[in-house]
Every structure is written in structure tokens, then in C-alpha cells.
Amino acid sequence: MFIKDIQKILDAQLLVGEEFMDTEVRSACGSDMMSDVLAFVKDQAVLITGLLNQQAIRTAAMMDMVCVVFVRGKTPGEDILEAARDNGIAVMTTTHRMFTACGLLFEAGLNGGCHIK
């Protein structure tokens, strides 16, 4: 799946990263708690979150994530978008809630990047 597919599936508005639309996404993580995101390294991942502050972008950057999707129609401020540009991370916002956004992506073939033990 590519970032452009995520935008389409979630009917999302792209805010940063037109140039990253063809970047591949291999896994996803949905959480508002950043330490939970940091607990499991995923490959080429997208972060789906309702946490609207710079730490969401910084966490994604630490994990080498490629895209952050803000759910529930949350629109990030310029400071967040600037942090995303600095780190080369695509940012979009969708009106879907967290559960629905994750479900739609999972249904389309994206997984959590780890196996159930």
C-alpha cells in the first residue's frame, strides 16, 4: 500500500507531503499514547492518532515512520506541520474515528507489523 492509497481509503485531506504520495507503507499503529507507539518498531509505518501535538510527529520521526494521520477531523496547527516538513513525514486528517480508520486500513490489507503471540 502507498501513502496515496491511505488518503483515498480514509477520504483524508493531505496537509503535508505531496511528494511522498508514492512512498510505500507496510504497517500501521493506532494510539494516542506515544510510549505505546515507541514500544514496537514497525517497518515503513503509518501512525493513526488523535493526539494533536508536536510529540506525535516527533514520535513518528524517532520510529522512522512515513506518515501521520490525525483522526476525528482534528486539524494540526502550523507548528505540527512544520515539524512534519522538517522530518519528511506526510500528514493528513480524516473525519473517521480511530476505530473506523484503523478498520478501513486493516480491511484494505494493512497490518500491525507484528504477529500475535
Binding site: M33, S35, Q55
Partner: peptide, 13 residues
Amino acid sequence: RGLGFGAGMGLPN
């Protein structure tokens, strides 16, 4: 916690 941290995963991570 409202800022996205304090889940008790910092030191374990």
C-alpha cells in the same frame, strides 16, 4: 497523559 505520555512505558522502553 493528555499529552500522550505517562503510560508507564518510558523506562521499560
